[in-house]
Computed example of a mutant assay.
Amino acid sequence: MTRTDLDTAAVRLSRVSRRYGSAPGTDGVTALDDVSLSFPAGSFTAVMGPSGSGKSTLLQCAAGLDRPDSGSVSIGGTPLEGLSQTRLTRLRRERIGFVFQSFNLLPSLTAAQNVALPLRLAGRAPARAEIQGALARVGLADRAGHRPSELSGGQQQRVALARALITRPQVLFGDEPTGALDSATSRDVLRLLRELVDAERQTVVMVTHDPVAASYADRVVFLVDGRVSGELQQPTAEQVSARMTRLETVPC
């Protein structure tokens, strides 16, 4: 990873706040409170925090799935505020990949057909070599004709990853991507994410509750009550676990 890669923000949030349930007569909940963060291109960032700290809201705002009440978000230098819903949808489709805890594969489709889905939804017929290439990137070139029921949980998550990567996104967002996997399979998926960052300079932003998963990242950003509460560079699982323990025992 070059210095230029690290100096270029794939995603930037500037003073972002998001409040829910703020209708007249209600107290509402502040999910994000004046958050400023940047995610360098070609880096792997884990986002952690106690339950209700704003992790999912941060991911949704950073990915353009939710609009903040104030502040700004940019992806690859393009500000999201002011974009029409159509343009925002196109930007997400072209520049962003998503991987979730649930694999969200269509059971009636083969692995290859699931991987091709984002391009078909965008109105483009993918080439067979393109699909095979995406599956090969995640080590499943020989499983193209298998349906989800014929694949293990780890293999299904790899198909979901190939589906997210087929559009060559600038940023890959993961929301607990290893949460439904056993520890050995989780490590396989995390090593794959690490390889994508190291070998292909893929930008990865991952929400997780698992200190071991977070230790695969270049840095861990901690949230508490909707605010950034520090970060760790080149973290170990032990460091992350100790920091989370302190955060979760701090009295309100």
Rank of each mutant, 00 (worst) to 15 (best):
M1T: 06
T2F: 11
R3S: 15
D5V: 10
L6A: 12
L6K: 13
D7E: 15
T8F: 08
S22H: 14
A23H: 13
P24Q: 15
T26H: 13
T26L: 15
D27S: 13
D27W: 10
T30W: 06
A31D: 08
L32G: 00
V35G: 09
V35K: 11
F39I: 04
P40W: 02
P40D: 04
A41M: 12
S51E: 12
S51Y: 13
S51G: 09
S53Y: 10
G54R: 00
L58N: 01
A62P: 04
G64N: 10
D66W: 14
P68H: 07
P68Q: 06
D69N: 05
G71C: 04
G71Q: 05
I75G: 07
E81Q: 15
E81Y: 14
S84Q: 03
T86M: 13
T89E: 12
R90F: 06
L91T: 10
R93D: 04
R93F: 03
R93I: 05
E94T: 03
I96S: 10
I96A: 06
V99T: 04
Q101M: 12
N104A: 15
S108Q: 11
A111M: 06
A112E: 00
P118Q: 09
L121N: 12
A122R: 00
G123H: 05
A125F: 11
P126V: 08
A127E: 11
R128T: 15
L135A: 00
A136F: 08
A136M: 13
R137Y: 00
V138Y: 00
L140K: 00
D142A: 12
R143F: 04
A144L: 12
A144I: 13
G145S: 11
S149Q: 15
E150F: 03
L151C: 09
Q156A: 08
Q157T: 07
V159K: 01
A160E: 01
L161Y: 00
L161W: 00
A164G: 00
L165H: 01
L165S: 02
R168W: 12
P169N: 06
V171W: 02
L172A: 10
G174E: 13
E176I: 03
T178H: 03
G179Q: 01
L181W: 00
L181R: 07
S183R: 11
T185C: 13
T185I: 05
T185D: 10
D188E: 14
V189F: 05
L190N: 09
R191Y: 15
L192Q: 04
L193A: 09
R194I: 09
A199P: 10
E200T: 10
R201H: 13
T203V: 09
V204S: 04
M206N: 10
V212I: 05
A213P: 05
R219A: 04
R219T: 02
R219F: 03
V220Y: 01
V220S: 03
L223W: 07
V224E: 10
D225T: 07
D225M: 05
V228Q: 04
L232D: 07
L232C: 08
P235T: 08
P235I: 08
P235N: 02
T236I: 07
A242G: 06
M244V: 10
T249W: 14
C252W: 15
